[in-house]
C-alpha cells in the first residue's frame, strides 16, 4: 500500500467517523453501533496492552463507549480527529486505572534493585516493532527511525504498555535519570519531525 493511498484510507475512516459521531450526538443508535463496530477492536487492543487484564479492559471499554454516547454532542471535529479523540479517551482511562492500581499494590518494604522484570505476552509484535511499523504513513515511520535506540525503546514501552518512568527504569535496568532524559529527548525529536512532516503534507 502506498503512503498516499494509506493516508486517504485513514482520512476516509476519520471522515466517516466524524459524520457518525455527529449523528450519535443526536442520539442515533444505529450510528453509535457503527462507531463501535468500526473502532471497538482497535480500542480494545490498545487498552488490553496497557492493563493486561481482559476483564478490566472490557470494563474500561464499556465505560468509554458509555461516555462517547453521552458526550458525542460535544465532540469538536475542528479540535481533534475522531480516532485521536476516541484513542485518548480509552488510553487516559486505562492509564489512570493502571496508576491507581500500582499505588494500591506497592510493597513499601521491597527496597531497591530486585524489581522483577515485566513479562509480556510473546504473541504479536513487540512495542518497538509496533513503533517501527507505526501508522500507515511513511513520514511517521521516518520520524520514528530518527530516534536513538534508548529513546525508541522507552517511548515504545511507555506508549503501548503504559509504563511509568519508574517502570521503564526497572524494565530497562537503567537509572531513572537516564530513562527520563531518553523519553524527553525522544519526544522533542518526534515533535520536531512530526510537525515538519505534517506541515509538508
Amino acid at each position: 500500500m502506498s503512503a498516499e493511498g494509506a493516508r486517504t484510507a485513514s482520512g476516509e475512516r476519520n471522515e466517516r467517523l466524524a459524520a457518525l459521531l455527529a449523528r450519535v450526538g443526536m442520539a442515533d443508535e444505529r450510528a453509535f453501533e457503527d462507531v463501535y463496530r468500526l473502532t471497538g477492536a482497535h480500542l480494545y487492543a490498545v487498552v488490553l496492552r496497557i492493563v493486561r487484564d481482559k476483564s478490566i479492559a472490557e470494563e474500561i471499554l464499556q465505560e468509554a463507549y458509555v461516555n462517547v454516547w453521552h458526550h458525542a454532542g460535544s465532540y469538536d471535529a475542528a479540535r481533534a480527529q475522531p480516532m485521536t479523540w476516541l484513542t485518548s479517551i480509552v488510553r487516559n482511562r486505562a492509564l489512570d486505572l493502571k496508576r491507581r492500581r500500582e499505588i494500591d499494590t506497592i510493597a513499601w518494604d521491597s527496597g531497591d534493585d530486585e524489581t522483577p522484570p515485566i513479562e509480556y505476552p510473546s504473541d504479536g509484535p513487540t512495542p518497538v516493532e509496533m513503533l517501527m511499523t507505526a501508522a500507515d504513513s511513511q513520514s511517521v515511520r521516518d520520524c520514528v527511525e530518527t530516534l536513538e535506540g534508548g529513546s525508541k525503546q522507552a517511548i515504545a514501552l511507555a506508549f503501548f504498555h503504559g509504563l511509568s518512568h519508574g517502570e521503564l527504569a526497572a524494565h530497562l535496568r537503567e537509572p531513572l535519570g537516564t530513562v527520563k532524559s531518553w523519553v524527553r529527548r525522544g519526544l522533542e525529536k518526534l515533535r520536531r519531525c512530526l510537525d515538519a512532516a505534517g506541515a509538508a503534507e
Binding site: 471497538g40 477492536a41 487492543a45 490498545v46 481533534a80 480516532m83 485521536t84 513503533l131 507505526a134 501508522a135
Partner: peptide, 17 residues
C-alpha cells in the same frame, strides 16, 4: 500531543472484544 502520538496507536493489531 494526543494528536501527534495517536498515529502510533494505529500499529496495535486489533483484538475483537
Amino acid at each position: 500531543w494526543e494528536r501527534r502520538l495517536a498515529v502510533l496507536a494505529d500499529a496495535v493489531p486489533p483484538v475483537t472484544p
